[in-house]
C-alpha cells in the first residue's frame, strides 16, 4: 500500500515538475507552438472539408497546403466541389505573413484566372461564418499576447491587436491544451468588450502523430448564425509537388483534389 502511495506521490511530483516546466514557457512560445499545431502540421497536408451553414447552405471543398521551407510562408490550393455557384472554382494563395498574400481565383465558366486584390482578411470565407483569416491563419506579430490564465489542462491567452483599427475585435482569448498545444476555443470581444464570436475545435484525433481537429464550429453570437466544418480524409506529408500551387493547376485541378 505504502509503495503505491509513494508511487502516486512520485507521479504527482513528476507531473508537477512537468507542468512547472511547461509553465516556464513564455506566452510567445505558447502561441508559436499553438500556431504551429493549427496551421503547420507536417510539411504539407490535404483535407476534404464539408461546411454546413446554419441557414441550410453548404460548401464542400478540398484543401491542399504546402509549407515553404525555412519560414512561415505557405501555399494553399482550394478546389470547390459544391454547391453549383462555386463548383469547379479553384483558389490559390501564396501566404506571406510578413507581407500581403498573393491570391488568385479561377472561374471555370470563363476559363479566367482572376487576381484578387489583397484586401481585408477578416471578411467571410465563401459566405460562411469562417473568415478568410480563420482558414489561413493570423500573423502572430499582429497581436500582443498575454498569458491570461493557466488551468490544469489549458493555457488561456489573451490577444490584443497592435493596430486596433484594422480589425473588428478589441481582443480575443484562446484556450490552448497544454499537452498538445491545440487551440480548443477562441472567443472574440467587440469594442465594448462584449463576446460576439466563438470558434471551437472539436473531435481531436491524432493523425500521423499530428493532433487534428476534425470539427470546427464558428458561432456568430451577435447574429445568431453558425458554421460547422467537418474535415475528412486528412493526410499529412503527402509529398505534394510545388507545381500544384501554380496557374497551371488552377486551370486544371490536379488529381489530388479531383479524386
Amino acid at each position: 500500500m505504502r509503495r503505491i502511495i509513494v508511487a502516486m506521490m512520485m507521479a504527482a511530483i513528476v507531473g508537477m515538475t512537468a507542468s512547472v516546466h511547461a509553465a516556464e514557457l513564455t506566452v510567445d512560445e505558447i502561441v508559436a507552438k499553438a500556431n504551429d499545431v493549427s496551421y503547420y502540421a507536417g510539411d504539407d497536408g490535404r483535407a476534404e472539408v464539408s461546411m454546413k451553414l446554419s441557414d441550410g447552405r453548404s460548401r464542400d471543398f478540398v484543401i491542399l497546403r504546402k509549407d515553404v521551407p525555412g519560414g512561415l510562408d505557405q501555399m494553399f490550393y482550394v478546389y470547390f466541389k459544391d454547391p453549383s455557384d462555386v463548383r469547379k472554382m479553384s483558389f490559390l494563395v501564396h501566404k506571406r505573413p510578413a507581407e500581403s498574400d498573393d491570391r488568385w481565383l479561377f472561374l471555370p465558366a470563363l476559363n479566367l484566372v482572376k487576381r484578387i486584390a489583397p484586401g481585408d482578411k477578416r471578411t467571410s470565407f465563401v459566405g460562411s461564418d469562417f473568415l478568410y483569416e480563420d482558414v489561413s491563419g493570423r500573423g502572430l506579430q499582429e497581436d500582443k499576447h498575454e498569458l491570461f490564465e493557466t488551468t490544469d489542462s489549458q493555457y488561456i491567452v489573451k490577444n490584443v491587436p497592435k493596430t486596433p483599427s484594422s480589425v473588428e475585435f478589441s481582443s480575443y482569448k484562446v484556450w490552448i491544451d497544454k499537452d498538445t498545444f491545440m487551440p480548443r476555443k477562441a472567443e472574440y470581444f467587440d469594442k465594448n468588450q462584449k463576446l460576439y464570436r466563438r470558434i471551437l475545435s472539436n473531435k481531436i484525433k491524432v493523425i500521423q502523430n499530428y493532433p487534428t481537429a476534425l470539427e470546427q464550429v464558428v458561432e456568430d453570437v451577435a447574429r445568431g448564425t453558425s458554421t460547422t466544418s467537418n474535415f475528412s480524409k486528412v493526410e499529412y506529408d503527402v509529398g505534394l509537388n510545388d507545381r500544384i500551387f501554380t496557374e497551371r493547376f488552377l486551370r486544371r485541378p490536379p488529381r489530388e483534389v479531383t479524386q
Binding site: S100, D102, R115, I116, A117, P118, G119
Partner: peptide, 11 residues
C-alpha cells in the same frame, strides 16, 4: 504585367 501595388492589384 499584373501584380500588387499598394493595397491593390495593378495591371
Amino acid at each position: 504585367a499584373r501584380g500588387p501595388l499598394g493595397n491593390g492589384i495593378v495591371n
